[in-house]
Structure formats: C-alpha cells, structure tokens
Design a binder for these strands. Structure first.
Length: 221
DNA sequence: GACCAGGCACATC
DNA sequence: GATGTGCATGGT
C-alpha cells in the first residue's frame, strides 16, 4: 500500500532528522522572495541576497514596485542569476499590483486551483516555485516537488524515472491526508535527506531510508 | 579548478 | 514532443 510506504518514509525521516522548521522566513513576502531566489541555487546564497534586501528596507511589494530592475539585481547579486531573478521578482510584484492592489491578503479568498494557475501564469514562476509559494507563504494544502523529491521517490521505486512534475505531486497528494503541516514537514525532510544522501557521489551509508526496498543503485544520479 | 545548488524559459531539431 | 542551453554566485 502506497500510503503506508509514504507514511513509513515520513516517520523514518522525522525520527532521524527532527522538525526542519520550514520555510525559513518571517513574512509571506519574504518567503515568496526566497522561493524565487532559490531556483537552482544554494540556500546560503539566497540568505545573503535577502539580508541585502532587508538592510535596504526593500522586502515588501510596495518597496519593489518602482525599483529599477538593475537596482534590484544589484541587491540580489549573491543569489546568482541575478538579472533574470530580478525580472522574475518584479513580474510577481507587477502581477500582485495589477490584480490585487499589491495586497497579499487579498489572495486568501481565492480557490487553490485558480490561484495556482494564476501564479503559474507569471513568467519565471514554474511549478515548484508556485507550489512553494502556495504552501509556505499562502498556507495552501499543496505538496511541493523538487529534484530531491524526485530522486528519493525514483530510488525507492515509488514512481518511474520518466515521471513529470504533476505525476509526482499527485502521488503524494492522493496518498496522504491533505494536511498543511504534514506537507510542510515532509517536503523539508525530503530536501534534508536528499542533500546528504541523494546526490552524485553521495554514499547511501547512514541514510535513514537505507533499509527500505529500492530499485535503483546510488550511482544513478 | 571542477562540480554542485530547494528552476525556468527559450531555441532548435 | 524531446533535447540542449543560458542564466551566475559562492561553498565544497
């Protein structure tokens, strides 16, 4: 039974690593900013960029609204891809002002499905970034999938290697209770275990999931 | 110095 | 529709 297996994985990870206290960030807009800045980027670099924005008192939609892209790019430089991410962050802010007066609280009464497709329509916001925003900044019951989720799921035979994003997301959502706190912790734990044990050249020895059945060898990645 | 990181859009075939 | 490439900094 798949839900039993998913539950077992969750329990092993939680027992081994403990709560991960995600998302690191104080306000919804800071979380959204982090979600965009962390695209294909180490979180420590994102922290530097967010600290820069904080020091300049720019971490709010209305502060970014009239800031030049090039100025914004300089502040977020440590996060890498700074030109393209400045554009993406601005795209989100533009969308927020054009549709909701720049007010994140006005998103609260919108259905999750419609909100997801609206956010996905913003250029530079793909499925993982959109779902991170929905779950961690806006409190929606949406499971976030990322490269580590995929690696762990494939390695343990939960899904075939050729799966797409929506298929993997559906696997978790249809086999787990729609629980915001569970989705929050589960995704964070998958990132945690993936970083240490599911990377190229990483050894599986010591992984809390080491004894579970698996279908792919560690050197797959 | 090579390799990697909590993606995404776009070009080309 | 599948595959390849640009975007960029900072840690290991």
């Amino acid at each position: 039974m798949l839900n039993r297996k998913l539950t077992q994985i969750y329990e092993l990870l939680l027992e081994c690593f403990g709560p991960q206290h995600w998302w690191p960030g104080d306000t919804p807009f800071e979380i959204i900013t982090g979600a965009i800045l962390t695209q294909n980027t180490n979180w420590t670099n994102v922290e530097k960029a967010i600290a820069n924005l904080n020091s300049a008192d720019l971490l709010a939609p209305e502060k970014l609204r009239n800031l030049e892209i090039s100025d914004l790019a300089e502040h977020i430089r440590p996060a890498g891809y700074f030109n393209i991410k400045a554009r993406r962050l601005k795209n989100f802010v533009d969308w927020l002002f054009e549709n909701y007066g720049g007010d994140l609280t006005r998103l609260e009464h919108i259905g999750a499905e419609r909100l997801r497709s609206e956010i996905l329509g913003i250029k530079g916001i793909g499925p993982e970034t959109a779902d991170s925003i929905l779950l961690y900044a806006l409190g929606r019951e949406v499971f976030v999938v990322d490269t580590y989720t995929s690696r762990v799921a494939v390695r343990h035979g939960l899904i075939e290697p050729e799966h797409d994003y929506e298929q993997l997301q559906e696997l978790f959502q249809s086999n787990l209770p729609a629980d915001r706190a569970l989705y929050n912790e589960y995704h964070a734990l998958l990132v945690r275990v993936g970083k240490q044990f599911c990377r190229p050249a990483a050894r599986c020895s010591g992984c809390p999931l080491e004894e579970l059945p698996h279908t792919l060898e560690p050197d797959y990645f």
